[in-house]
Design a protein around this nucleic acid. Structure first.
Length: 703
DNA sequence: GTTAGGG
DNA sequence: CCCTAAC
């Protein structure tokens, strides 16, 4: 687990909100209705202050609003970014909602649905379209709530959608339900919330407005108006750390990517999450009680009297601030929820380029890798409302007017490190993944073999014509600086040893680039992974040739000899490439992937391998053990030299010589095998005679 | 800084 | 291509 301190966050990643987050401290407990009122006024006056708001912050914000109206100063509510909504005494107090910043909240959320309850019931004031009236909430003592739902499936299917839509609203039950009304037992919300799902018209996104079936709709829900423009996927949508991000949490606990990816909907987490949701439902349902009345009473100054109290408790050393609403129907705010269901997150467009000879399986893997890589990026969620980014995370939904403009609500995916790319993505130009905005493109390309490429996604027109292939066809002498080295991004691509692994190339559109969830964020503080640059045939040719000349084990020399001008090829790269070449040469052609290496080159590789192996049988170039004799008979302690290259042996012998015979100077020692290699002359500072041990008998060392 | 090898 | 041990 990696602990990452993240002082900055934000869904556009630009900046930390200038003002400290209100109500993030769970330490204080100051129920002051007066303060709350003031706060409401002040916050409402800040409606024009558009700051960024993250989707998850909506939860906190709404919860904060809850507390405010309940008599608690906003700032007390949420301390950290993780929102934990848990129920306390569900059976006894269905309206009890806790919001905590507990560390254990991490990972506990798979927030794929954010549900705010629509005007639904009750409110005669509710606008027909918006369903929720924001401005007058204070008057009505409304409490907007956000529900977090943890569905098993991220994406809704048509069938399900249809089903839900056809479901008839149940008559309103003027009762406090959840625990009592639900047949689902512990997690009744599941049943409650599966109501209306609408598929977004203009794309594959599934957006839905969910309404509590227990609530009576005076008006048919206008689902079509409530769709979300764009929903994008994020790796962290289900993880606590992500939530923390949004909530300015200092300590982020990153979870393993793969783990996250593979078990996003794990049942293991489900009960817990569902429980949270259920509690939220409880709370919202408790409002229904209020709905039974024509009009709720204005909030009283006494929080207790108002039916609200703020609980601060400690859970496992973590402070937990909970808001509990007494079951005082007269004082419970009216239900004014907008249920917003995100049925699926849209994955930014990806481009794939594969050889026509690629198999379907490889295609699947490619897509899988791309998506995995995408989801593993460190991305933020931005909230767009009517094309404008909501930057103030502290604003409530009411203040932003979101409940009235659900149809204009959109979410954006933003890389976490956006603040570091001001040059690429100006502050105010974060990518807006609304239908009107250019979509981010991610291009995958496996190999330089342009002619055989298959463009899987036709919208390549958007992509830059500057494909990576153009950069690999040159000679070895070129360093290919024009290669798609991602300046500030790197979708880390786990290619492993798969020679056919693909290169991810960012779209040239800076905005699109900014929208790509880049893994660099995660490793930006460390080092950036170099982009993968497959070896061209000519490079392989040069490598093989150099190895033929110099042998293996001298990669630095190989580099200097054959790739001196190829700045992007280190001798480690060459060594690695040779390793893969050897492997490639040993496997059957059917098993080979990626750009095929000419068999002629592979044959040469095989020849070199065998040559080396045969050499190993005859211990010519290897010195296992030598004894050093001075002159003829003065035997020095036997020195063992590991198998190594001549250079190392030379230095070793020089060491021994200078150590033991430092008085003998200006002598030249000839060290050769039989037959003496041309460059086997070692010059040492003393005059000695070396003799090899018996195992190497026959390869004498002469003076 | 190089080399070798595992990941 | 990364990382690291061992030189």
């Amino acid at each position: 687990m990696v602990l990452q301190k993240r002082l900055e966050y934000g869904f556009n990643g630009y900046q930390v909100p200038p003002t400290p987050r209100a109500a993030r401290s769970a330490t204080r407990r100051v129920p002051s209705w007066k303060k709350i009122e003031d706060n409401n006024i002040s916050t409402n006056s800040n409606n024009n202050n558009n700051k960024q708001m993250c989707a998850f912050d909506l939860l906190a914000t709404v919860a904060g609003n809850l507390l405010q109206e309940g008599g608690e100063k906003e700032t007390e509510i949420v301390k950290d970014s993780t929102i934990k909504i848990e129920q306390q005494n569900v059976e006894n107090d269905p309206s009890n909602v806790n919001i905590c910043d507990q560390g254990s909240c991490n990972r506990s959320f798979f927030v794929s649905e954010i549900i705010s309850q629509a005007p639904t019931i009750q409110d005669s004031n509710s606008g027909p379209s918006s369903g929720i009236t924001v401005s007058d909430c204070s008057e009505k003592s409304k409490v907007d709530k956000v529900k977090v739902k943890v569905p098993f499936t991220v994406k809704a299917d048509e069938k399900n959608s249809k089903l839900m839509t056809n479901e008839a609203p149940k008559p309103k039950l003027p009762v406090v339900h959840n625990t009592d009304n639900n047949n689902n037992g512990k997690f009744p919300f599941c049943k409650d919330n599966v109501n209306l799902v609408v598929r977004d018209v203009d794309d594959e996104n599934f957006c839905g407005v969910t309404r509590d079936p227990n609530k009576n709709f005076k008006q048919p829900p206008r689902i079509e108006d409530r769709r979300i423009r764009r929903l994008l996927a994020s790796k962290y949508w289900k993880t606590g750390p992500k939530l923390n991000d949004g909530m300015n949490c200092d300590n982020d606990v990153y979870s393993d990517n793969k783990t996250c990816y593979k078990r996003p909907r794990s049942l293991k987490d489900y009960p817990f999450k569902k429980r949270r949701l259920y509690e939220l439902d409880d709370f919202s349902n408790s409002d229904d009680v209020v709905d039974s009345e024509d009009r709720p009473s204005p909030p009283r100054k006494d929080p207790t009297e108002n039916g609200f109290k703020l609980d601060v408790k400690s859970e496992g050393g973590v402070k937990t601030v909970g808001l509990s609403a007494k079951q005082n129907p007269a004082f419970q705010p009216r239900d004014s929820h907008v249920k917003l269901k995100i049925k699926s997150f849209r994955v930014p467009e990806l481009f794939f380029e594969l050889p026509k000879t690629a198999t379907v399986g490889s295609l699947k893997r490619t897509v899988m890798e791309a998506v995995t890589s995408l989801l593993s990026g460190d991305i933020h969620v931005g909230v767009m409302l009517q094309g404008k980014k909501i930057r103030d995370d502290d604003k409530t939904l009411l203040q932003t007017g979101i409940p009235n403009k659900l149809d204009a609500l959109g979410f954006t995916l933003e890389p976490n490190h956006l603040q570091n790319q001001s040059s690429l993505c100006p502050k105010d130009q974060s990518v807006q993944l609304t239908p009107d905005m250019p979509k981010p493109l991610i291009r995958y390309t496996p190999a330089p073999n342009v002619s055989k490429q298959l463009v899987i996604q036709p919208e390549v027109s958007r992509a830059s014509p500057d494909t990576p292939m153009a950069n690999f066809g040159g000679s070895v002498e070129s360093d290919h600086d024009s290669a798609p080295s991602p300046p500030n991004m790197s979708m880390d691509h786990k290619s492993g040893s798969d020679p056919r692994a693909l290169v991810m190339v960012p779209a040239m559109n800076p905005r699109a680039l900014a929208a790509v969830p880049l893994r660099k964020c995660k490793r930006s503080e460390v080092a950036q992974r170099r982009i993968r640059r497959p070896f061209s045939v000519s490079e392989v040719e040069a490598l093989v040739q150099a190895v033929e000349k110099l042998g293996t084990g001298r990669w630095r020399d190989v580099k200097l000899r054959a790739f001196d001008n190829a700045k992007h090829r280190t001798y480690v790269d060459l060594k690695d490439k040779w390793k893969t070449l050897v492997h490639t040469a040993r496997i059957s052609p059917q098993q080979r992937r990626g750009e095929p290496v000419p068999q002629q080159l592979l044959d040469r590789v095989v020849y070199l391998i065998r040559k080396k192996r045969s050499k190993r049988c005859h211990p010519q170039p290897t010195i296992a053990c030598i004894s050093i004799r001075r002159q003829v008979n003065s035997l020095l302690p036997r020195s063992f030299l590991p198998k190594s290259n001549p250079r190392f042996i030379k230095s070793k012998i020089t060491n021994l010589a200078s150590t033991n015979f430092d008085r003998a100077k200006n002598s030249v020692l000839y060290f050769y095998r039989s037959p003496p290699p041309p460059n086997s002359c070692f010059e040492v500072s003393s005059c000695f005679v070396f003799s090899v041990n018996r195992r190497l008998d026959g390869y004498g060392i002469e003076r």
